[in-house]
Design a binder for these strands. Structure first.
Lengths: 168, 168
DNA sequence: TAAAAAAATTATAATCCTTCTAATTTATTG
DNA sequence: CAATAAATTAGAAGGATTATAATTTTTTTA
């Protein structure tokens, strides 16, 4: 964690920005919640626990700054708020997302699925790809498993009923 | 055009909705600007030309309704407004976008680039894909060509200078 | 066809997210 | 240490979207 903070500090310094206490608190919150997809408001509330004096505007400005420096990626899942996602260290492409339309969960895919597709886009559409956003909407593995379990149960009950009917 | 309107009318009726004059005017605007990616405000201003009495709220509600029925897709390119994009007739997947970070243009890719990727996601992550959003950010062919032309020009001028220098 | 009920629309207010502004604080430089 | 620059705070302002109440249009039903 500390190493990562230090590297981010260097990235800021390289562009003549400082890692102020407020900025550091914000980065820490992002690191501690790396799996989540926090909105600016979410970040603000969490940062307040560490640094109660911080203002919402500062959080917005810090997130904007981190986005500019490609330390975080700003993403929108269509629910009216922007969410902020730490870029994995060394990752040169933005990871992808699986949004469940049943339970609302958001999972991440770190694998680069688009290598070939991007090559094709550059060749066929003569478009120089710099970044991408790929999100799948559908049903997550948890909800699928829940469904299967329910179907299983229903089947068993039906079978039980049938057996009882046969007895009578 | 009329045929398309009629088919949309039927889709509405199938769900017990009516194609009111305001809704029809909105759909016409979307059809007439199929290449664009209009915001609700854009649509509102264009619909006003046909039906000046329409209210902004109606446009929003109509677009929401059309989105529910999968007649249009709501999409967000990160500029603070939602944009609405007619689904191509018969298309069972949402098309992709190329957003130019230099000139702001948005081009569409109708080809299904994700067939294999989606199969992989379903297998490997056990996620049932229902829809997707894929947007590339980069430099469009127009801007690339402009750049090349400028480089070409610069080269020519440099060569000219060199020749003149040799003369003297 | 007239009355009642339902659906849709209008205009405007309200809300929510985000950005801007002015005043203040903190850090940096000569 | 004074002067300048950078960053932050609190709150106002802005813009996009949604909610509300009154009105209009359409549909249903007697």
């Amino acid at each position: 964690m500390e190493g990562r903070i230090n590297r981010i500090k260097k990235q800021l310094h390289a562009q003549k920005y400082k890692l102020t206490p407020q900025r550091e608190a914000t980065v820490r919150v992002l690191l501690e919640n790396e799996e989540d997809h926090l909105s600016a408001e979410d970040v603000y509330l969490l940062v307040k626990e560490k640094a109660p004096e911080i203002g919402l505007a500062t959080v917005y400005r810090t997130l904007e700054l981190l986005t500019e420096l490609k330390i975080v990626d700003k993403i929108n899942f269509g629910d009216g708020v922007s969410r902020y996602d730490l870029r994995r260290e060394g990752a040169n492409h933005f990871h992808h997302h699986l949004v469940c339309i049943e339970c609302g969960s958001v999972d991440e895919i770190q694998e680069d699925l688009l290598g070939e597709v991007e090559k094709l886009v550059e060749r066929k559409w003569h478009f120089k790809v710099k970044d991408h956003r790929l999100t799948f909407h559908g049903i997550c593995h948890r909800c699928l498993e829940k469904r299967e379990a329910e179907n299983q149960k229903k089947h068993e009950q039906e079978e039980k009923k049938e057996r009882e009917a046969e007895k009578v």
